Simulated scan of single mutants.
Amino acid sequence: MGSFFSTLLGDYTQVPYVPLAFHPDTKGSQIILDASQYIATRAATFRDGLVFSNRPIKVNEKVTLEILKEDGRWFGGLRLGFTSEHPSLMNSRDLPPYACPNLVKQGACWASVLPDDYVGEGTIVSFWVNRKGCVFFSVNHEFDYYLLLEDVPVKKPLWAVMDIYGRTKAVQLVDPSRPKIHMNESSEKLLNASGQNGEYLERALLKKHI
């Protein structure tokens, strides 16, 4: 309990290191997490795919994602950024459908759209915020990096925000401190199940609006 409240107050010196994963509870209504909480899949439609990191991200700490699966029926892809609001204090039912512009307009969130050139299946995307509040991203571990957004207040604790939107169907967090998780049978079943559930949910949504 003490560690939890010290995290809320931004005192991380007494909190032991926690491996980076997706927040287990606060997520968009279409998000399915695997047992490890390293793989996030959007079940249906092209929206309601918000996910957050399970802990604050340090300045210059890279958050790295691999795009595992695409859905070619949609346009656009990942939205990336940071929030100063603790995900544990959010209610998943109150989350907006999109990071941009909805969550950004609510305040305490800074996010932007990843260019379409970098949302292909198999692409590895890293993003981070520097001491000046500039958010950069790079792809496939290349040396070159690009500015994504500016003016993020780094004096506050920041959690990563990722919107699994549009073409992007499933992503995996890649942590350099642990071996890469390869798609196993259970992960394949998760992706296949999400696709089947997605088709059912999309038909239900269409019927609702007819």
Rank of each mutant, 00 (worst) to 15 (best):
V135S: 02
P157F: 09
A44V: 12
T13A: 06
K156S: 15
T123E: 10
S194C: 15
L201A: 13
D163L: 07
G76Y: 14
P19K: 08
V139E: 08
L114H: 08
P153R: 13
S112L: 09
A99W: 11
A204S: 11
E202W: 15
Y165Q: 12
E188A: 15
T83R: 10
L80Y: 00
N192W: 15
C109Q: 07
H182F: 00
K207Y: 03
G28L: 01
V104I: 02
T13W: 01
E185S: 07
L68T: 02
A44P: 03
S3T: 14
S194V: 12
C100V: 13
G107P: 00
L147V: 03
K58A: 13
T41M: 07
L201V: 15
G107I: 03
P157I: 06
N130A: 11
F82A: 05
G49C: 01
Y12S: 05
S6L: 11
L9K: 06
F75V: 14
K207G: 04
Y146N: 11
L33C: 13
K156N: 15
V125H: 03
D151S: 07
L65V: 03
R178I: 01
L95D: 06
L206A: 12
Y200M: 15
L9H: 14
F52V: 02
Q106I: 04
N130W: 05
